[in-house]
Every structure is written in C-alpha cells, then in structure tokens.
Design a binder for these strands. Structure first.
Lengths: 207, 207
DNA sequence: AAAAAACCTACCCAAAAGGGTAGGTTTCTC
DNA sequence: GAGAAACCTACCCTTTTGGGTAGGTTTTTT
C-alpha cells in the first residue's frame, strides 16, 4: 500500500509538478489536489492522507490556519509546509500550528521524496535554513545583566508565587532583606514591579 | 583547503572511526582528537576548527558545559553533538548551550559526512528523532482552561507591568472590575497571586 | 591593607493587591 | 423568554509591595 499524499497549493503547475514527482515513486501517491484549504477541509476524512503538502499563501484560509484546523480534526495528520517564506515569524507560526516539517519551494525532486520518507519515519523534514533557524531559537544569547546569587534566589522564589514573608522564611533572612534585594533587582532590570522583574528575568534567562 | 574538524570523544575506537571516515573525504580533515574537553579547551585557538564533533558524556567537563565554554571563546565555532542520548532535556540543554547540530551515535558514515557538509553550509544537522523532538517542542498543546476576552485583556495588561489603576484607565473600566476579573482568573488558573497568574497564562499560552 | 561588592537588617509611610459581600446590565444560548 | 455566562461597579478591610533612609557585616578584588 502506497502512502497517501494530498497537495494543497494554488500554483497549479507547481502542484502538478509535485504530483508528477510523487506519483513516480513506489511508496507514495497523490490521492487529491486542492487549490485552497476550504476544499481540502471538506474532504478531510474522505482523503485521510498520510501526509499533506501545504502551501502557506492560499486564497481564503491560509496555510497556517488551515494547518491548525486540520490538526484539530486529524491530530495524526502530517503536514509539511512547502513555501517561499523563510521569514522567522511565519516559520514559527507554522510549526506552532502543528506543521510536521517546513520546506522551501526551491527544493529538488529528491529532496521532496526524502522529506516524505522522513515524515513517514516519524521525522520532521526541514530545509537547511529552516533547521538552522529552529536550532538558533534555542540559543538564548546571554544577557549583559548580572544578578547576584542571592538576587536570583529571591527572584526564583518570587516566580514560584511566594510572598516576601514566605521567601524570608525559606531563605532564613528577614523580609526587609528580601525587599532590599528586590529594590536592587528592579534597578538592574529597569523595572518597577515584581511581575515585570519575573518576566524580564525569564525572558533574559537570568534564573 | 579542507575544512578542519576536531573530535572530542573518550571512546577511542569510535573517535578513530570518525576520523577515518572524515579523513577519507576531499573536503574535511581531522586536525586533532581529544578524549576530554579540558585538553580541547587548552588548544581552542591553536586548533581553530570549522567543526567540533563533541560527545556529551565525557570525563571531567561534560559536553554541554564544554560547548558553552567553547562557544564563549569561539562564538563562530560549529559544534555538533554526537551522542547516544535522546533524552529531551539533554538535547535541549545541548542546543541551548550552543550546539549547531545533534546526531545520535548509530549514524552511518554517509550521514556523518552529510552532517558536516550541512554544517558548513550554515545548517543544523539533526538525526530524525531529534528533529522531530525539536519541532514538537513548538507545538503547544491547547490548554483546557478558557479565559474570557476581558480576562485575557486584563492579564495581558498585567503582564506588561501595569498597575490595576492604569489597567482600569486603559480598558475604560473601574479598578474594582479589574479586581473582579483577577479573582475569577485566579480561580480558573488555580493560583493566588498576579505573578503566578501571568506565569501560568504564559506557560499555557492563554494570551 | 584598602576598596568595592555583595549581603544583611530595621524602620517608616504610601500605594497596591487580595478577599469578601452585594448588587447590577448585557449578551448569548436553549 | 428564561437562564446562563460574561461583564460591570461599589463597598468593606487586611495584607502585601514599593520606595525611602540609615546603618551594619562578610566576601571578593585590587
């Protein structure tokens, strides 16, 4: 049994090209092609493919919203975004929406097939630049702000929802000392409330 | 000029195997091999390789800490983790530490070379499972908690560091209403302070 | 040994937040 | 058109925070 692929792409020549490539393989076949999400969504359970190839820029519902919808209806569906966009926001939006992989449209036939195979094998095919972007997103650049050990402890306790009183108890220091550290933290972090301090510390990875 | 590779791996046969494979290519050569991070760190600027292949489990400084150190000294260094661990914490720790890629040790010679090439091309080589893990980490599963529109607005304002008074002004409602919504939010989120509410809302992606 | 950071404590006061009760309107759903 | 849910407001009072001053000790750096 071949793995079923559905293509959602409004550029018909491109869509046909993909289908051509896929239908020449032994493992995959294109069971349907759509030029918009709406039509694809109407036939979700009928098509029930192993993999969707999804364009992002589509008339009507765009690829990211379409991905969310399909994922809600068919949580096990694999959706590979195939698009020209390498803008980071769009990439991350697509991944957050539930995309399994993300390829750019300049891909070679081999790469398309490899991506399909990787998807079936439980992987997440990505083009080189995208993979790099994704990995980079983990690399939090160190903040220039330096908190002392004690200040970090206080902030961690605070972030866990403790009041100054209970933090004082836990750290065996007085509430006044907690406030003293907080004041310094606010200055270092350029904020003036505990909420902002906790959020900024989280954002800058200070804890 | 061949691209320079340094291997940090305490399993000598494995290290030799990698070197053998790499030295048989036209594009890469192993300029040094170490069985611990300390020795590698001593020769950072002397070796100055294009790519490090780094084991995680090493005597002394482990691969993740070593990666942090090397990245600090040589920010442009490409460090590929090569390890048996597929535990998610370790993978993400390594990526956060600055690893360029992450491969598992059962890789084939071709895959190793491909990974090196991908690295030089500015990519982030990952084995299939790792790529999937990384992509999955973006897919925030929707929380079962539902906040009303107004509650979200209040929480967003709060997360931006505004006081109840200024939130009241911005939303054209009274401070009492702010407090009313907050009370309901605390119940829904099972917390009892604004800090916790903001943090939980962020974590659960409610805003 | 001197200087600089980091750490600790106490006190004061004003502002902000938490928790409770008690009412009302608007909007959507059945 | 009844009921539910979301939304809104006003009180009350207690606790918690923020911001200030003014001192001290310990630890690290120069």
């Amino acid at each position: 049994m071949k793995h079923k692929v559905v293509i959602i792409e409004d550029n018909i020549p491109l869509s046909e090209g993909f289908a051509e490539i896929i239908n020449h393989t032994d493992d995959f076949e294109v069971v349907n092609r759509y030029s918009n999400c709406e039509d694809a969504i109407d036939n979700l359970t009928y098509d029930n493919p192993d993999v969707y190839l999804m364009d992002i820029e589509l008339p009507g519902i765009n690829g990211v919203e379409g991905t969310k919808y399909i994922k809600k209806a068919l949580p096990k569906a694999n959706i590979i975004m195939v698009t020209v966009y390498e803008n980071s926001d769009i990439v991350f939006d697509a991944l957050c929406a539930g995309a399994t992989g993300y390829l750019t449209k300049n891909l070679k036939p081999d790469e398309l097939i490899d991506a399909l195979k990787e998807t079936i094998a439980g992987g997440a095919p990505m083009s080189i630049k995208i993979a790099k972007m994704v990995v980079n997103s983990f690399q939090k650049k160190p903040s220039k702000i330096e908190l002392s050990k004690r200040e970090k402890e206080v902030l961690i306790q605070l972030s866990e929802g403790n009041s100054y009183d209970s933090i004082a108890d836990k750290l065996f220091i007085s509430k006044n000392t907690i406030k003293f550290h907080l004041k310094n933290i606010y200055i270092k972090l350029q904020v003036n409330s505990n909420i902002e301090a906790v959020q900024k510390a989280n954002k800058e990875n200070l804890l």
